[in-house]
């Protein structure tokens, strides 16, 4: 019985929104362009265009803004750490003193900006992962990297590797669970003993898993060969990436946001 169907890599949320319908190349490039917004912000007010932009994207992708906000939670610790570092170790005009530590107005500004910057960065990346399936991401990345093929970089092979890896993650997940259960039922003990003993206890799980990965890889290679796959040979696609007017429009919007924020940062 398969019950791990809910298991997925990334946090892709399937949908039919405007953002979902964009070409993955547009989504990936768009994300990099929009990263300019948080990176060019130098004072708290400069983040208004960046946050506004994220809000617009969340509406256009029908992903609740609250959900997008929550996506930054895993990095809160990192943010707190950088904030504290910036708060106490930025030279400048002293506003308060905590024992040997000095807090400067520049420090407050920097801590605030740094935190928001990281948070915006994570949210921007999260929007991309939430609206792009792993398969789409792989094919978009393949096409964006295609100029590298000119310098003999194996772009299509790497894209195929990504596709296959994504396909096998759930299978290997099931397999390792099954092997683990089988060894536990033969009395394997992963809990007692010191570090070395415990590490050794994992051999009966890792060894069969590796053997299976290699035999599987071998069988899969045969199956792919019998289906006429030739590494590096040109392939066509069932769903070719089509750059449409809405992609151009979306790119224009992204650039417009960057220009707008540059003007905003300068005059406000």
């Amino acid at each position: 019985m398969k019950f791990s169907n809910g298991f997925s890599i990334g946090q892709f949320i399937p949908g039919e929104s405007f953002v979902h319908s964009l070409d993955p190349r547009c989504r990936i490039t768009g994300m990099f362009i929009l990263l300019v917004l948080p990176f060019s912000a130098e004072k708290p007010l400069d983040f208004v265009p960046a946050v506004f932009c994220l809000y617009v994207i969340s509406a256009a992708s029908r992903i609740p803004f609250a959900k997008l906000l929550r996506s930054g939670r895993p990095v809160l610790f990192l943010i707190a750490f950088t904030a504290i570092l910036n708060l106490f170790w930025t030279p400048g005009h002293e506003v308060a003193r905590l024992g040997p530590l000095r807090i400067t107005s520049e420090g407050i500004n920097l801590a605030f900006c740094m935190s928001l910057r990281i948070y915006c960065l994570v949210m921007t990346a999260a929007v991309l992962m939430m609206t792009t399936s792993p398969m789409d991401f792989a094919s978009g990345a393949e096409r964006l990297m295609s100029p590298l093929a000119l310098v003999k970089f194996p772009v299509s092979e790497i894209a195929m590797m990504m596709t296959i890896a994504l396909r096998f993650i759930p299978t290997l997940f099931d397999e390792s669970e099954r092997i683990m259960k089988a060894q536990i039922s033969r009395g394997a003990d992963f809990e007692s003993g010191g570090l070395i003993k415990r590490a050794r206890a994992y051999i009966p799980i890792l060894a069969p898993l590796f053997i299976q990965v290699f035999t599987r890889a071998d069988s899969l290679a045969t199956a792919m060969e019998s289906r006429c796959y030739v590494p590096g040979a040109p392939r066509t696609r069932l769903n070719p990436l089509v750059w449409s007017a809405r992609d151009t429009a979306a790119m224009a919007c992204a650039v417009a946001f960057v220009v707008f924020s540059a003007v905003w940062n300068r005059y406000i």
């Binding site: 596709t163 396909r167 199956a223 069932l238």
Partner: peptide
């Protein structure tokens, strides 16, 4: 080979 049913069926013809 592929994670989506139709994409897997397409693998051979794509090649």
């Amino acid at each position: 080979v592929a994670s989506i049913v139709e994409e897997d069926v397409a693998f051979g013809p794509e090649n």
